[in-house]
Amino acid sequence: MTQATTGPAAADERVARRDPLRRLLVRPELGALIGAVALFVFFSATADAFLQTSSFSTVLYASSTFGIMAVGVSLLMIGGEFDLSAGVMVTSSALVASLVSFQLTLNVWAGVAISLAVTLALGVLNGLLFVWTKLPSFIVTLATFLMLAGANLGVTKAVTGNVASDSIRDMDGFASAKDVFASEVDMGGVNVNVTVFWWIAFTVVATWILLRTRAGNWIFAVGGNADSARAVGVPVARTKIALFAGVAFCAWFSGMHLLFAFATVQSGEGVGNEFFYIICAVIGGCLLTGGYGSAIGAAIGAFIFGMVNKGIVYADWNPDWFRFFLGAALLAATVVNHLVRRRAER
């Protein structure tokens, strides 16, 4: 009996139907890639300045500042959760480093380290609140978003008597910290901001984690079906808390860039940016429901974001309309993503 069953009956004629093209189509980032190419062609045709290398470097810079955050946010989304506090956390992080360094007259690197500890603690707190309360992460991080936004303003005003932090430009370690977080690198005559390289590095590391480590397996699993993951021994709570901490790490890095690019931080900044990060991740193919997506997709999403952001300026359009086009791009990208995936999975 077993001979008969393992033989021809098992060679199901339906197994071979997924040809290589289909497999490519089912990649989460494909829709975004098509969109990115289309936008690139469009802006190249309509805006003469767009194709100049210096403009391209500006586009990349804009993409990178959002792309670095999109890395953490996309991993969290694949893990099935949101972090609405990500935008203001960048500001909090920059403020902590700036205020601590200035008030205690420390080397700025001490402020940078303290800021890292504080920001990671904020991320872990988000995760713990989520795990303890069992509330949707949307609500939990909406609460921390509001609290952080208030604290940013309140603490800064109380300490400096102003809505911005004092300039730390002349303090010890500023130059070396600026080299790491906010310098410009000469690439064959074109200045490229160092954040572009960090953005690429973050994306590569995140992709490796997602696809080639056990942690990555767990991230997909907790986002795809948390109960099943728990049943086979995946530490669901620990994975989710780590993902919130990952967003916090990206927020810290972005905060350091903000601080060392301008030497001073406006305490009201960052509100609303959390949606841009989520938009990058969604355009890049992350499912809002979790369990599906990629860091490379989020990077392409951030690139689309940067192109729209700067392309409008180069095309001499009214920049007031930026959000309108961003909304349209988001809608188009998600519809394309959805259609592509439906077709590919059929």
């Binding site: 997909f220 795809g224 079906n225 099943s228 049943a231 086979v232 599906y292």
Partner: peptide, 10 residues
């Protein structure tokens, strides 16, 4: 178990 403990998208 009946619900199998699998993650459908993986």
């Amino acid at each position: 178990y009946q619900d199998l403990a699998v993650v459908p998208l993986m």
